[in-house]
């Protein structure tokens, strides 16, 4: 997994609430398109007009925001379906960090599996940062410093965020969860051996 340490990049603001994973990537794309090819279908219903041309209303279609690597969203970002392709699609657009007041829980977990950092900040802070990005596109850059756990806004104000230590370490070092768990094979085997006696009906 690609490491995440510090990222300074253009950030785009997408203020829609409850952005669901169906909106991020249509399900038939999940089924048909290879992992590496999903980026061009990310947000397709919002990003393109029915004739296939760019929808000027979609923030990431405008000027410098086309190069955004950070996405600032609204409450319940990534709610809905468990499809991990939503993360693959966003990553395929070049995004490495999403900042929002809250996230869909499965999406939130899927981000970490793919080296993408989801950052939770208070709603008022997110709205203020979003407004600053919209007001001055030429200066719409944020820094996300995972080691220090802060987001630096265009006005240089710093906003601390929380992250669970294990997840922080995994992102900073690019660790692989399956590899780590396989080191615990003896514990898993011991659990099952005991559990088979306690709950034999589970092992059909």
């Amino acid at each position: 997994m690609e490491k995440f340490t510090t990222l300074t990049a253009i950030a785009a603001y997408y203020p829609r609430a409850n952005v669901d994973t169906d909106l991020i990537i249509r399900v038939e794309r999940c089924a048909k398109v290879e992992k590496g090819g999903l980026g061009k279908y990310a947000f397709e219903m919002a990003r393109f007009l029915p004739d296939g041309s760019d929808n000027p209303e979609f923030p990431l279609n405008n000027g410098p925001f086309r190069q955004a690597r950070i996405l600032v969203g609204n409450i319940n970002f990534g709610c809905g379906s468990s499809r991990e392709m939503a993360v693959w699609a966003i990553a395929g657009m070049g995004i490495r960090c999403v900042i929002a007041p809250s996230f869909g829980e499965i999406f939130f977990g899927n981000c970490f599996q793919n080296g993408l950092l989801p950052v939770i900040l208070p709603q008022a802070t997110v709205e203020k940062i979003g407004a600053a990005l919209e007001a001055d596109p030429a200066n719409a850059k944020l820094t996300v410093d995972l080691e220090r756990q802060v987001v630096v806004a265009p006005d240089k104000s710093e906003h601390a965020f929380a992250i669970e230590p294990l997840r922080k370490k995994a992102l900073l070092e690019g660790l692989d969860e399956i590899g780590l768990t396989r080191l615990r094979e003896a514990e898993i085997a011991a659990f099952q051996q005991k559990d088979r006696l306690k709950r034999p009906w589970v092992y059909v």
């Binding site: 468990s82 499809r83 991990e84 392709m85 993360v87 499965i106 977990g109 899927n110 599996q113 793919n114 969860e177 399956i178 768990t181």
Partner: peptide, 10 residues
């Protein structure tokens, strides 16, 4: 509960 593909593989 539901999970993504990485966790399915896990």
């Amino acid at each position: 509960f539901g999970i993504g593909i990485s966790e399915v593989v896990h």
